[in-house]
Design a protein around this nucleic acid. Sequence first.
DNA 1: TCCATCATGTAATCCGTTACATGATTAG
DNA 2: CTAATCATGTAACGGATTACATGATGGA
Lengths: 194, 194
Amino acid sequence: MARRSQTETAVLGALSMHPMTAYALREAIRDVLGHFWSESFGQIYPTLGALEQQGHVERREGPRSGSSTFAITDSGTARLRELLSEPIAATPPRSGLLLRLFFGRTLGVRKCRELLLEARADAERSLAEYDRLARTISAEEAGSPDLPYVLTTISAGRHNAEAAIAWADEALALLEDVPGDDPPADGPPANGDS
Amino acid sequence: MARRSQTETAVLGALSMHPMTAYALREAIRDVLGHFWSESFGQIYPTLGALEQQGHVERREGPRSGSSTFAITDSGTARLRELLSEPIAATPPRSGLLLRLFFGRTLGVRKCRELLLEARADAERSLAEYDRLARTISAEEAGSPDLPYVLTTISAGRHNAEAAIAWADEALALLEDVPGDDPPADGPPANGDS
DNA sequence: TCCATCATGTAATCCGTTACATGATTAG
DNA sequence: CTAATCATGTAACGGATTACATGATGGA
């Protein structure tokens, strides 16, 4: 069971929408699934090769000489359905931001505030991006059977971004009354080098 | 630079609160940082060893024969400050749930609804847990300089859980009018086995 | 002609999980 | 005495990123 983990799922899924070259696949995963998924370059080719050997995808003439277009086969669609039905493998959480805030006493309040403001700004930007995306896709893909599903994933991004903004504000308030003793420079005190 | 990635940060951070054995460290990371961080077992011992060699932690007599308690040293605290100040390494997103919903046409509406209901229930449970946690810690650690920082991380969990609930409801509404053609069983149609 | 983009792949390496292997202490 | 918990480590494996290596095509 060469369960290439969930890479297989992402690749088959992307190809289930329309056939494309490995290169285009990579861009589709980055640009279309990018908000909630990522695949590294070096995974895509080997996975495609394995899927081809298993008969789940078919290699055809590509747009350039030496290039190939991959299309999902019936067995590939069945395999995808199977993979999507598997229980979700829980990704262990790893938030560098929360790790820093948790040890904020050591980091210093000032830097914590900076991190929070940055996070807030990032979230604000994502929020705008999700709104734009939702409008674009709703128009472009109007009537597509995929549309409602795609919209649920965009909605997830929107809600997360909104939550991040509200959280950042609350967290900034929580740190409001913390004494500004913070810049505990890494050497002895009263040393303004950095 | 054997940058044991961010494991080093988590280990030094945990030891910055109080000295403990490697075993206790593991439990602290699981139970205390667990909402936003995880370290696998096999990372902790080697990392502690490396930190000891660099003089960032000190090994002392442990509570049992053959066991050791580790304490952070001054250089360790400086190192922690350094690590915490580094730019946050963005973790590539990987949401198995959103991956499944995105390809929901293939998975089938029914299973998508089930996934959403599950996710909603999970979030509801976390929410209660975060509330309980916030109350417990506020009482237990009242007056601790770490308290406000810890509360910001709990607040993050709360907001995320709330967002997940609101999102699940919205997503369920989005899938409301999708025709229930869904169970595209992996064989021929008109087969009510499951 | 030359650069950006399209295109395909391999290899080295790192990070992290899991399984394995062992033993001391304490509570029931 | 015996099971649960505390305690420490190593080894094997698998998954993922990154760097390396190469080349075609088309537009400026």
